[in-house]
Design a protein around this nucleic acid. Structure first.
Lengths: 112, 112
DNA sequence: TTATATACATAAGAAAATTATGTATATAAA
DNA sequence: TTTATATACATAATTTTCTTATGTATATAA
């Protein structure tokens, strides 16, 4: 999933849900480019990870899709459902807790 | 590996290496208790994850072991080798980068 | 004597990625 | 003109890393 890092395992769904909460609707390729842009090329979302993740989130009812043809190419737009928004809130909190505890364990926050 | 979180996947080696860099030598069970203590019971290291990870780090030359019998029970103490210390520094930097980028992606750091 | 804590270990299975492959169109470069 | 790159989707095989379950063994508290 990344340039040299396998630490992002488990965070993909959270990242996707958060991006969709900020962007109303996005298509797969757009998500890969957005992640690339935000991380300045450090994190490259692999298609083999992204598309199955999107399908899973859709199957679980967290995402809704609309398909469009733009420039003769197919685009499958994803947007957050009601429950997807709830899931985003939950997963975001879990991610915050995770970061806090990882920082504790790795002694990255001085207890000034 | 955790109470309700699968986000820690991939961070176990880093956590172990960091703890060993701070404690000179530790044995497996001690590591599980240390992690439990630091995270206030939130993160419970599973033995099925920890012991294979220790064996792998040892096989790669990052850890050295000495075995002792205490109270009639076996203890296998692990300590960082020279290369293990280097690996710890590398993995710690990767973890820092990972956290920073995850915070960027999840919009957890206001750009004040 | 039963449960819990200490202390190690490994095998089977699940989950989530990577890598590789496939289809298809548009455009820039050689 | 044909080759590479970008856009846009998808899935299968494999790998990695974890969880769950199981096993051995001693000490102590209920």
């Amino acid at each position: 999933m990344s340039t040299n890092n396998e630490l992002f395992k488990g965070t993909l769904q959270t990242i996707v849900l958060k991006l969709l909460s900020e962007n109303d609707r996005m298509y797969g390729y757009e998500i890969t480019q957005k992640v690339k842009q935000i991380t300045k090329g450090e994190l490259m979302l692999k298609e083999g990870a992204l598309y199955p993740a999107l399908h899973k989130l859709e199957a679980e009812g967290f995402l809704e899709t609309t398909t469009e043809v733009v420039d003769n190419r197919l685009r499958k737009y994803y947007s957050l459902s009601r429950s997807g928004n709830k899931e985003m809130v939950n997963k975001l909190q879990e991610a915050k807790d995770f970061i806090a505890q990882l920082q504790l364990l790795l002694n990255l926050k001085p207890t000034t």
